[in-house]
Design a protein around this nucleic acid. Structure first.
Lengths: 213, 213
DNA sequence: TGCTGTGAAGTGCTTCACAGCG
DNA sequence: CGCTGTGAAGCACTTCACAGCA
């Protein structure tokens, strides 16, 4: 394992690191101090070597013959993911979903903060929602620069998701989390993640029926 | 492609079918009648042969030299996924998140209906939330059987997610959608999907930092 | 002629198996 | 002695390339 910075890290590894964080946080809360790869893997629902290999992309964090210190492993992973600092976010689409997210206190707890909100409905612009003024999308470039916003959340209806994405990209945003049930087209340097729990319900439905076929 | 029922279908294919449904629904809404695999693939963010191969697991739905009829392909996929019928669901954990989901009208539109809700807080039991009475988890086996519930939604805090899962499994549920930020342990015949958008934020954060390193 | 459906080739991730260290 | 870290083997999914049909 040579210079960790230069090598390609699988997408699948990154997704699992988020799981490890979740499980390690719960272990830390319960007071577990040391854990070895196999029980940690079981708690995460993966294979033991998987964890060791995933971690190896970033360095050596374990103690041979012993295991991993929960607290310091957690710190190492959050540092590797760069989620041990503040991230500022913009939200576009102040409807039901947007408001529900603004009420979601976990953002602040994890240092992912929504600092500007936007809508294209003239009746909503100027309204104060959860302490934030709803801005017109025209003001996005200025506010993104001014507030050092790095992530955009799309919570519009599907018809307006593409327009919202384009606004974000034009404002200089390169990381987008899209809650709208629509795929969006963005330049290749922009990174998009999709959140849609109907996808998960569809998987459950299919497997349910396949299992009982 | 012989008898479609018997062959193994990759998890990855099922996940993509949900994307195809989403995109086809939007195409249908915009009035597109026919689409061929390559433009459909672009709209979905995947490769053209990927779509053709995914569909081949279930049958032949295209017209050679022409493409796919949007409406009938949509019907074919929703039928293959078994999401063209009603699914009844139970929700455990009537907190902020649980209430937000109960208000989420898309469930009804897609025929995934929450028909019973549970909590272990004695102060909440008996309360009416969105037209449903909050039940004690003890009543779960009876209500699951009576209402023919097939899917369980966990919206408890992480500490109580495992207990909620165990209640669901004991009540005969074999499909669980877990919104709590904790992994749960269930027997191998039970299928669990996890929804946690912090996982997606972590991916965005990592890629953001990696790209600019 | 154009696009689907599909075997074959290619790729990347997962798991194994064990050397190496605490 | 036990568990980590890691090359090598295995497996699953993706992409290619084209035969075959409308």
């Amino acid at each position: 394992m040579d210079s960790h910075k230069s090598m390609h890290i699988p997408r699948a590894t990154i997704r699992r690191l988020a799981i490890y964080v979740q499980v390690l946080e719960n272990l830390a809360r319960e007071g577990t101090e040391i854990i070895s790869s196999i029980p940690l893997a079981e708690a995460c629902g993966v294979n033991g070597s998987q964890i060791r290999k995933d971690l190896a992309y970033f360095g050596e964090f374990g103690i041979r013959g012993v295991g991993y210190k929960v607290i310091s492993l957690l710190a190492a992973i959050t540092s590797a993911l760069d989620v041990d600092r503040e991230w500022k976010m913009a939200l576009i689409g102040v409807g039901n979903l947007g408001k529900a997210l603004l009420n979601h206190s976990d953002f602040r707890a994890r240092n992912f903060n929504i600092v500007s909100i936007f809508d294209c409905d003239p009746f909503k612009i100027g309204e104060i929602v959860h302490g934030l003024e709803v801005h017109c999308t025209k003001e996005m470039p200025a506010l993104v620069a001014e507030n050092k916003i790095e992530i955009g959340l799309i919570t519009t209806p599907p018809q307006r998701a593409q327009r919202a994405a384009t606004h974000l990209v034009n404002a200089g945003i390169t990381s987008i989390l899209n809650f709208a049930p629509a795929r969006i087209k963005v330049p290749s340097h922009v990174d998009v993640e999709y959140v849609d729990f109907f996808h998960h319900l569809y998987s459950l439905a299919f497997n349910h029926s396949a299992t009982r076929a």
